[in-house]
């Protein structure tokens, strides 16, 4: 099944996962590309996005699997789709088939923390120290209620630096599938264990995805 790599930035980050699926289905139609439909009582065009992205999160590395009816050439799909997409959603590459989504394992994400007032000059250092602890237990909501979860085993690497007096950027390599760590949990950890360093605003960006051996996943 063909796959495409796309980015979702700017205003489009506010589009939800389900709305984004619908948006792509329409974009394919506008581009004159006929999606194959699922079998069953209510046939739906088959598009599937690898890792649902939370509303408000930017990404440079989203994957979408799709299937087209009849014959087509892969080369022109990206251009056709980009002409039919909205500001912020851009197809970067389209290719014939990729690795099994099950093998997707790690995510490099960038967290930007913003502070209204001048912050402690040791903030970056203290945040890095926090994620060096042996355990960080956070509540995690599941279908059966709230469970406790240690996020440390899911953080492979991290480095934090100070950009200016109001901005901290944290770069982290975390598990994104089996098990999954939502990058928002990193911010929650800061808010919980370093309450005086709670950012006034935070933003997250997915930068790259990898398999278990840290090979770029496509």
């Amino acid at each position: 099944m063909p796959r495409l790599l796309f980015e979702k930035v700017g205003r489009s980050v506010w589009i939800s996962h389900l709305d984004l699926m619908r948006l792509f289905q329409r974009a394919f139609k506008r581009a004159g590309l006929k999606l194959k439909h699922t079998q069953g009582f209510n046939p739906r065009p088959s598009v599937s996005i690898a890792l649902p992205l939370s509303v408000g999160v930017e990404s440079e590395c989203e994957l979408l699997d799709f299937d087209l009816e009849g014959e087509y050439t892969i080369d022109t799909i990206a251009d056709k789709l980009n002409a039919a997409l909205v500001e912020g959603v851009r197809v970067k590459r389209v290719y014939d088939a990729g690795k099994k989504i099950g093998a997707l394992s790690l995510l490099n994400c960038k967290l930007t923390l913003k502070y209204h007032s001048d912050m402690n000059e040791r903030t970056a250092e203290m945040i890095d120290a926090l994620f060096e602890r042996e355990t960080i237990i956070l509540p995690k909501k599941t279908k059966s209620g709230v469970q406790e979860l240690d996020i440390i085993p899911m953080i492979k690497r991290h480095s934090t630096c100070c950009i200016d007096q109001h901005t901290i950027v944290m770069d982290a390599l975390i598990c994104c599938q089996n098990p999954t760590l939502n990058p928002a949990q990193l911010v929650l950890a800061i808010e919980t264990f370093l309450p005086e360093m709670k950012p006034d605003f935070s933003q997250c960006r997915r930068v790259e995805i990898y398999d278990i051996n840290e090979t770029v996943f496509r």
Partner: peptide, 24 residues
């Protein structure tokens, strides 16, 4: 987009209805 609107958006339901940027 206005910084302030950006910061408010994560706190409200269905933020996409306030952003514009649709096709056409």
């Amino acid at each position: 987009m206005n910084q302030l609107i950006q910061r408010i958006l994560p706190t409200v339901q269905k933020p996409a209805r306030y952003t514009g940027g649709e096709y056409n």
